[in-house]
Amino acid sequence: MTSAAAVSIRNVSKTFGKGGTKALQNIELDFQPGEFVSLIGPSGCGKSTLLRVIGDLVEPTEGEALIGGKPAHQARLDRDYGMVFQEATLMDWRTIEKNVSLPLELMGWAREKRRDRVRELLELVELTGFEGHYPWQLSGGMQQRVAIARALTFNPSLILMDEPFGALDEMTRDRLNLELLRIWEATSATVVFVTHSIFEAVFLSSRVVVMSARPGRVQKVVEIDLPYPRTTETREDVHFFELATEVRELLRESHSGRDAAPEGT
């Protein structure tokens, strides 16, 4: 356990309600700074719960999560991370610009500084010119880009993403995967990415954490030794398929007996 680890998960378990569902069991994980880690597993394996434990939105029944050596609770209060959810969760009554500047308002930034930063970020996610639009005027993919911009406003060293592209069509998803990698390289943050999609996990990450069915345990961590920067060619690489197959077979093992097969089968 080094204080250099971006995220340390120490023996985290979570049970909901007294004697209720056990979502997570004895999770031990370390993520290094600048890594891109995916969490993948069958439905109900607790990956979203684990992400929320890291983000101090859910309290673990046992164990703790540390972010840059700090307890998760403190990290949340210090705003050390940005989070992107599956639904863009944009505020309908705010323009795109005001949506992105929301965290900055909370941190008390001056208006000029806010405007400049928002402009910078909208450029990063390639949405320049949409400042005055409202969320419902944008497509799903664009809304998610706004959500990503919002998560990056205060330059966090850690980004938590909970199936952000889950509700989008495949073409948009592929495009946004490339964009996400580009943004990641520009910001050099650590990313913890929850997904259902094997291809997406392998394409984006440096490591894939495969979780077992409920109660969620770490089944195996797969090293993705594909080179960065990754491109559309990477998707056609033989090694890419080998890694995807490895992940798929791990998932099939963890499923054993369950009906639903994950995406990409």
Binding site: L57, R76, Y81, G82, M83, M91
Partner: peptide, 9 residues
């Protein structure tokens, strides 16, 4: 939305 605001402390 409430969860989002919590994540911003």
């Amino acid at each position: 939305k409430l969860e989002l605001m919590r994540s911003y402390a």
